[in-house]
Amino acid sequence: MIAMAAGWHSDGRGWHERRDGATFVLTRRLPLRWDVWAQTVLPDLGRRRLAHAIRQDLWRALRSLRGFAPAVEVTRDGRLCRVRAGGSVAGRIPGGVSERIAAFLEDPGRRRAWQRSATHRRSQ
């Protein structure tokens, strides 16, 4: 069995997760690196579901970036979620990648989809 870095656990599908108070982090590679990233703010949503939805779309948007391994950090801040998305790049980083991520995070259609998929589940 491979030893995990302190506080991290594997979801069994190759993703590493860490919960630290109000913050949930999801990454493909350890140690976590933020070679490229951008931030946004969304309403309070399910942090794990939101992180997985964003990383899935981010991977699709940047899959042509050689050596890219996505990471998403979601921090609950009152009635908001502060999101940092990006990750590590094993290789040369072309200009404008962080700007592409910022535009990706502000896309209205994606934001609506993330909110639908990560809305808090209420027990009935």
Results as ranks from 00 to 15, higher is better:
R82V: 12
R66Y: 13
W37L: 14
G95Y: 10
V97H: 05
T75G: 07
L65G: 04
W8L: 07
D11H: 01
W8H: 08
F24T: 04
A85Q: 03
A113H: 14
G14W: 07
R66D: 13
R19P: 04
G12Q: 02
L65Y: 06
V41P: 00
T23F: 08
F104H: 03
W15D: 09
F68H: 08
T23M: 10
A3R: 12
G67Y: 06
V25N: 08
Q124R: 13
W8K: 05
A118Q: 04
W34M: 04
Q115V: 10
E99A: 11
V89F: 11
P43G: 03
D107I: 13
D20F: 09
R47H: 02
T40D: 00
R116K: 14
A85Y: 03
R92S: 13
G21M: 06
P94S: 12
L32W: 02
R122D: 09
R49C: 06
A51M: 00
G78W: 04
H52L: 07
A90S: 14
D77F: 11
R82T: 06
V97F: 07
E99I: 07
A51I: 01
R112S: 15
E17D: 06
W34R: 03
P43S: 03
E73I: 03
P94T: 11
G12V: 02
R33W: 00
L58K: 03
L30V: 04
V74P: 01
V41C: 02
P94K: 12
R76T: 06
G14N: 07
A5D: 11
R33Y: 01
G87N: 03
R49L: 10
E106L: 10
D77N: 13
R18Y: 06
G67D: 05
R63Q: 10
R49Q: 09
V89L: 10
R66K: 14
R92D: 13
T27V: 15
T23K: 11
P43Y: 00
H16R: 10
R63G: 08
R47Q: 02
G67S: 05
A113M: 15
R47S: 03
R122F: 12
D57K: 09
L30Q: 07
L65P: 05
V97D: 05
Q56L: 10
V36C: 08
A85R: 02
S98I: 01
S64V: 14
V83M: 00
F24I: 02
G12T: 04
Q124D: 12
A5M: 10
V41Q: 05
E99M: 09
L50C: 00
V25C: 12
R79H: 07
P94N: 09
L105G: 00
S64W: 14
A38R: 03
H52E: 07
